[in-house]
Design a protein around this nucleic acid. Structure first.
Lengths: 218, 218
DNA sequence: CCAATTTAGTGATATAAGTTACAAAGAAAA
DNA sequence: TTTTCTTTGTAACTTATATCACTAAATTGG
């Protein structure tokens, strides 16, 4: 990949020497959709910067129960990988590609070096911390203060925006897993939304009304 | 305050020129117990470093419901203040002194300057992000995966450690608020713990058995 | 095409937690 | 001391969610 392409993928980074360094030191990695990039306990050796596709970040319980936290999109990186790596501790989360994904793996030492060397890298890292804290708080608000029906509607909106479509190709089980509940609960709640004519259900697909977001916030 | 005292209060910082800068630029602030330092919507103008006492950090819902996140102890600072300040956005959390507390308020510009100037400040900030992410995950695990009785027991342990005592001077209502539930629920659950002889209840006080922590993890 | 598997629908029941409604004990104030 | 306020105890009830036990439809693999 050449400089111009990389520059286009990383809107937050424009400094040519930083881009050059990224190209030189970063390893280009490609993953198919649904690939588990890391799991709790695994050691992370690189800071992943998403170039194409997206990765979903989940928290996992001891008994395997999961909870969706947030998506990483092109141009972004994971704050938890930054902190885990630096402290050389195992991953606290599970990361799964949501679509075919290309990422640039930056060695930790380079991250540390670049913190001093490139102002833009420092800003990039600061922005990452800020965004991720914000998203952790959103996830926390949901589980702490919201009912499952509201969480489900929020989940649908997030997925729609993520995939830029109003047809979600997924199963009730997958939604249930990511919301940390059971399939039956999700099936029932989806049925309620269908009765309200806000969505339509098919096998492996959910069709969402164009004005869904306005409907739920009303 | 002189250098030696400050150095003693901040075990993570030893660089004399950084300590000097902290003394010169930081404003010494004292608060009584129970004082609300910041609330959602308020703008934070300084990065607070705890010198004495402690501060509890809470997330607040739109309808005023609260949720305890973590304590800030001497030598620590708040990651959210770092991110909020830098982006000049209002506070996302509520901070209340748990005891009489002394803190050093560092202007944001100095934080930014010191990031380049002092390696120890950079490390301090990195450590802060790491610790706070970890504690956010603990809070998230609790609300996402644990039942209220387990959360209550965890809360008791945290408070015991924080105050270094096995007598908690608090009301059921205060516990309920910090766990985001109602007083009746806490009263009932505490009664269950008393029936098991793990604690004893008094007015405004909870006596906790010395081996409480072993009991709950069994 | 048929059998096996995956996915979804749904009633019945269980449980944790939230709510309502008081009573009563203890502490503080008058 | 009497009154008032705060705190706690508790029963009764509601609600949200979880679990169990199926059925049935759709899809896949032979």
């Amino acid at each position: 990949m050449e400089l111009e392409v990389l520059k286009q993928k990383l809107p937050n980074i424009s400094d040519p020497s930083l881009l050059q360094a990224l190209l030189k030191e970063g390893a280009m990695l490609e993953f198919p959709a649904g690939k588990v990039i890391t799991e709790p306990g695994k050691f992370i050796k690189m800071v992943p910067i998403i170039l194409e596709g997206s990765i979903k970040i989940l928290r996992v319980d001891e008994d395997g129960k999961e909870l969706f936290l947030y998506y990483l999109e092109p141009g972004e990186t994971c704050a938890l990988s930054l902190t885990c790596c630096s402290a050389s501790r195992p991953s606290e989360i599970k990361a799964v590609t949501e679509e075919p994904t290309v990422l640039l793996g930056v060695p930790i030492q380079k991250h540390e070096e670049w913190m001093d060397q490139f102002k833009q890298w420092k800003d990039f890292v600061a922005m990452t911390y800020q965004t991720r804290f914000q998203e952790m708080l959103v996830a926390l608000d949901a589980v702490a203060f919201k009912r499952m029906d509201q969480r489900l509607m929020g989940y649908i909106v997030t997925k729609m925006k993520q995939h830029k479509t109003n047809e979600l190709h997924t199963t009730h089980q997958e939604i249930a897993t990511e919301l940390g509940t059971s399939r039956e609960v999700i099936s029932r709640l989806l049925k309620q939304l269908e009765k309200k004519k806000w969505i339509e259900l098919g096998r492996n697909i959910i069709y969402i009304r164009d004005d869904f977001e306005e409907l739920i916030s009303a």
